[in-house]
């Protein structure tokens, strides 16, 4: 049984072939899990996640879901932290462009499938789109109860008291619910679900969304879904209703006042600026003539950034 590896074939082209084959074999099983996930909104369907050619934690769940649904007519957009140009988004987009020969885009409106890590695009999604989330820890109760056998029973019995106790302890201690991201939701009045580590700013976008939302957790081997137009409620209390955080400054590049902003450190003197985390949203606003206070006229090479910033002061 030794020494039979086709060494001569083990070259770069073979790696391509290998990757495609891996995905083909896994797809059918993932597709079945997706159908169950849609039929039972918010319930985490176990699936036999496979080793992918990228590490667990880099979006293997999202990649497997995207690979399972992707067809020749799809147009794929991949974002990480809201941006198309973050290294992991670039890497995953290149992976699909190479192995599935699928059209890719950075324009939210042009995409039929959007794979995301940590954000929901600012633009309202449409019925022709599917949003695929990369999920690290799918179990919303995991940090309250580490045992799968226990949390599974809690979901079966709709026993979510523990989650409310945790949120209420926050209020008692801090005067607020101290969860800023991965804020738990209840789907279609039944399952409590982890929305993946999106900032709670994005939570309201999940409710009554016209697009299908699919969630893939590769390492934890779970898939779950929110069908279109499904009620998604962020957990809260009557006297402490869920609040979406807001920024008190507009985007420094496009002037948007209603988008999620990244804080960029501009110097070592406490200088900060805020820019849209959704790069496509920001760029399309600028293309329409919206301007923020820090928008440069000419493209600036990153190496020149510091001197340009200094020059601006």
């Amino acid at each position: 049984m030794t020494g039979n590896t086709p060494m001569a074939d083990y070259n770069f082209a073979y790696l391509d072939e290998q990757t495609k084959r891996m995905i083909e074999q896994t797809k059918r099983m993932i597709r079945r899990a997706i159908l169950k996930a849609i039929a039972v909104p918010g319930y985490q369907v176990p699936f036999a996640s496979r080793e992918m050619p990228m590490p667990y934690g880099w979006g293997t769940g999202g990649v497997q879901v995207t690979a399972a649904i992707l067809g020749p007519d799809d147009v794929l957009k991949v974002i990480d932290q809201g941006a198309d140009d973050t290294t992991n988004a670039v890497s995953i987009r290149a992976f699909f462009a190479r192995t599935a020969r699928v059209a890719v885009t950075t324009a939210t409106a042009d995409a039929t499938i959007i794979q995301t890590r940590h954000r929901i695009p600012e633009a309202t999604l449409t019925a022709d789109q599917v949003l695929v989330y990369q999920v690290p820890i799918p179990e919303p109760l995991r940090f309250l109860e580490p045992r799968e056998t226990e949390t599974r029973t809690m979901h079966a019995l709709s026993e979510y008291g523990l989650m409310h106790v945790k949120l209420y302890e926050d209020i008692a201690r801090h005067g607020h619910i101290a969860t800023a991201y991965a804020y738990p939701v209840q789907v279609a009045g039944r399952y409590v679900m982890d929305p993946s580590p999106i900032p709670k700013f994005d939570n309201p976008k999940m409710d009554d969304c016209p697009a299908l939302q699919l969630f893939g957790a590769g390492r934890e081997k779970r898939i779950y879904a929110i069908p279109p137009h499904t009620r998604v409620v962020s957990l809260d209390f009557e006297d402490h209703p869920f609040e979406r955080n807001r920024f008190d400054v507009p985007c420094a590049l496009c002037g948007a006042t209603d988008s999620y902003l990244d804080e960029v450190v501009t110097d070592d003197q406490g200088g900060r600026m805020h820019v849209c985390s959704d790069t496509d949203h920001c760029e399309s606003r600028r293309a329409k003539g919206h301007r923020g206070t820090m928008l440069a006229d000419e493209p600036v090479h990153p190496a020149d950034r510091r001197s340009k910033l200094e020059a601006a002061e």
């Binding site: 290294t87 800023a180 999620y260």
Partner: peptide, 18 residues
């Protein structure tokens, strides 16, 4: 190793929220 090492991927959106 995947999950431990993924901590080096960008998390700035969640960090911002926090």
């Amino acid at each position: 190793t995947g999950f431990v090492e993924h901590l080096k991927l960008p998390h700035y959106v969640d960090f911002q929220a926090e």
